[in-house]
Amino acid sequence: MSAIILFTAVSIAQLMLAAAMAIASVRMFRGPRAQDRIIGLDTLYINAMLLLVTFGIGTGRVIYFEAALVMGMLGFVATVALAKFLMRGEVIE
């Protein structure tokens, strides 16, 4: 019983997160300006991180948690660097 509930919930959650990632990447490709693309990337990696945590719940392994933690840290640094580049790189030299 509880295995069925968990399996259904994890599958639905993974579908929703995958849809959120798809939408974020559409905005990343379409986004009218660079800042829209960067926020698209930010949303994309946060949803990917959540997807990894749901994989961890699905398989019962803890290793996915560490992957998610690393992903969050690298994504944060990447977004900050890109935002800094937008401020310093293009408009003002």
């Binding site: 509930i5 968990l6 919930a9 929703m16 997160l17 849809a19 939408i23 974020a24 926020i39 949803n47």
Partner: peptide, 26 residues
């Protein structure tokens, strides 16, 4: 079963909010 229901509830709330956020972002 109660734990499974609790896990499913929070999982669906979390991923639903993430999806709504992405839709709004679009």
């Amino acid at each position: 079963v109660w734990a499974a229901i609790a896990v499913a509830f929070f999982l669906l709330i979390g991923s639903g909010l993430a999806l709504i956020g992405a839709i709004g972002f679009m």
